[in-house]
């Protein structure tokens, strides 16, 4: 009952937004984070996150428009209403949950240490193995937070180097020797190494298992949109589309 009422509210609110036959929903996304969100050879935006959003939009009768945005201004742009939601492998943490609405998860993946392909070492001790190393990370990402938290408890043992969030520059600097490692979703490495031939590899065990969510503003419209997306997502999970997309992009079903 509650769900139906929320949906009715959602439809009503969304209806006031524009008189067009099909509503447009704008989506903030990096466009440089393969294989989740990136531009193909023709310059068309694609990737796992993009296709999931497109599928959901189809189910709930919306038109999804993607707005490529640099990582370090992603949340700022969401606040400033440059788009309605963020689809960029966002993990959940208490700080974010306080400020934003989270959909249900659409992927569960693990953070792992990434190093240059020819680097020796087991890295079986997780973050502790990064002590004394130069580790690159994107400003404000969840990975940053984990590294910073570790540093706080361990006397700044890790030399954190901040980047604007574009993972490819971080990977490039690892290959160039300017960085020793980074921590990011293990699924990116497969794509980067295979498609672009970047000389990086994942090592050790996954450090955390983080589900990924879509993020919306915490207001009436955001709340309505969250509910709508959750409905669409539920449909995707039920009819197996989500699992299919995961297979397509990652070679396995990580949607749990």
């Amino acid at each position: 009952m509650q769900i139906l009422r929320t949906l009715a509210l959602a439809a009503g609110i969304l209806g006031t937004l524009s008189a067009a036959p099909r509503q447009t929903v704008t989506v903030g996304t990096e466009g440089v984070y393969a294989p989740f969100t990136f531009l193909d050879e023709k310059g068309v935006i694609t990737g796992y996150d993009v296709e999931v959003v497109q599928e959901i939009a189809r189910r709930v009768d919306l038109d999804a428009k993607f707005v490529p945005t640099p990582w370090d201004s992603m949340f700022l742009a969401l606040d400033a209403r440059k788009f309605d939601l963020v689809a960029n492998q966002i993990s959940r943490n208490p700080q974010r949950a306080e400020k934003y609405n989270f959909s249900n998860d659409y992927l569960v993946s693990g953070a792992q240490i990434i190093v240059r392909g020819d680097r020796a070492g087991q890295f079986s001790h997780g973050y502790a193995d990064l002590k004394g190393l130069k580790v690159g990370t994107g400003v404000g990402s969840n990975y940053s937070k984990h590294l910073e938290d570790f540093n706080q408890k361990n006397g700044k043992a890790i030399d954190i180097k901040y980047y604007d969030g574009n993972l490819t520059t971080v990977l490039q600097d690892i290959v160039a020797g300017r960085l020793d490692a980074t921590v990011n979703d293990r699924l990116t490495v497969g794509y980067n190494a295979k498609k672009l031939g970047t000389n990086v590899k994942v090592v050790g065990q996954p450090l955390d298992f983080e589900p990924s969510y879509f993020v919306f503003r915490k207001d009436a419209q955001g709340g309505a949109l969250t509910a709508l997306f959750n409905k669409g997502l539920a449909d995707l999970k039920k009819d197996g589309t989500l699992a299919r997309l995961s297979q397509k992009w990652f070679g396995a079903d990580f949607t749990r």
Partner: peptide
């Protein structure tokens, strides 16, 4: 300078903003 990860005032501002989620 922050574009090549030299943390000067602007870089620090981005880090602080992202950390506190208030920009």
């Amino acid at each position: 300078a922050f574009m090549i990860s030299v943390v000067e005032m602007m870089g620090e501002a981005k880090i602080l903003g992202a950390r506190g989620l208030r920009f």
